[in-house]
């Protein structure tokens, strides 16, 4: 009974948070900026994928999809968590029965909505304005259907844990931005990865973004584009292995970190932070 109520409260919370997102112009613009940037990048670039006659637009669109997932999970999510911790939103949740469960359910709803809207915009924008392809058949759509959820499962818990441990929203941004952009830069999101030194390519293979981008490319592009891929194959097995490993690690780590964060929230801690934070 309590579980059903927690679920209902969490879904209600998710619905309201989505409403708030949509009625705040600043949020809508920041939601749209990544998809638009990648669609524009795809539109203005007329190059072909190295070793093929296929347009680079597909690489940017696949990169955009990965970028939406990575950015929402690792930049937006930690920031929101740190902000809501500072404001006392989390503490308020703690005062209500099953409030933290409802909070996490609500955040999951919001995150899924943000990611789905972002991905849809990038794919549709690319197809309409930049001539990138949509997945050609059922198999390609199915590829997206495992690559993207697995990518989310790999990234979201890490982002949540990050938001829970970083002291405040400003530091959350500072600490997450550079490494995330760094990993994105070497993951074939902004350009084809084969132009990078071998050592850098190897490092990028340790992180999910490369595999999310590559998985999306495998759904958008025919096999004739494989010349520009590491190993000259779509490497689905490796993609599955690396993202699943991150998902397992994330789901082992994040609940502990989040529980610890929830346990630590109290009125006096909130007051302490308030005094410490610049007004």
């Amino acid at each position: 009974m309590t579980i059903r109520r927690a679920l209902a409260c969490g879904l209600g919370r998710g619905r309201l948070e989505i409403t708030h997102l949509l009625r705040t112009p600043r949020e809508v613009i920041s939601q749209l900026s990544t998809p638009i940037a990648f669609v524009v990048l795809a539109m203005v670039n007329d190059d072909a994928i190295p070793g093929s006659a296929l347009p680079m637009a597909n690489v940017f669109i696949a990169g955009g999809v990965a970028a939406v997932v990575v950015q929402t999970c690792l930049i937006a999510l930690p920031q929101v968590l740190a902000t809501e911790r500072e404001e006392g939103t989390l503490l308020r949740q703690r005062t209500a029965p099953e409030g933290m469960t409802a909070y996490l359910i609500g955040k999951t709803c919001l995150l899924l909505t943000q990611v789905l809207i972002g991905i849809a915009l990038v794919l549709a924008g690319g197809a309409v304005f930049a001539g990138s392809g949509l997945p050609a058949g059922l198999g390609d759509w199915l590829t997206l259907l495992w690559v993207l959820p697995l990518g989310l499962l790999a990234m979201a818990p890490i982002g949540a844990a990050l938001g829970a441990v970083l002291p405040n929203a400003r530091e959350a941004l500072a600490w997450s931005m550079m490494p995330v952009l760094g990993v994105m830069a070497i993951s074939g999101i902004f350009f084809s990865i084969t132009s990078l030194p071998e050592a850098v390519q190897t490092i990028s293979q340790l992180f999910p973004p490369k595999w999310i981008a590559q998985g999306v490319r495998s759904a958008l592009l025919p096999d004739s584009a494989l010349a520009a891929e590491t190993g000259h194959s779509w490497q689905h097995l490796q993609a599955l292995g690396v993202t699943a490993a991150w998902a397992v690690a994330g789901f082992t780590l994040a609940p502990r970190v989040l529980r610890r964060m929830a346990r630590r929230e109290s009125g006096s801690r909130l007051a302490e932070r308030r005094t410490a934070a610049p007004a």
Binding site: R5, A8, C9, G12, R13, H20, R92, L270
Partner: peptide
Amino acid sequence: GELGIILQSWRDHPRWRVRELLEHFATY
């Protein structure tokens, strides 16, 4: 659920409207 808590100055849920915030918390 049997407890109510009023703490020192809060700034939580800044974007929520008053009625929707109260209605949401009533559901708990």
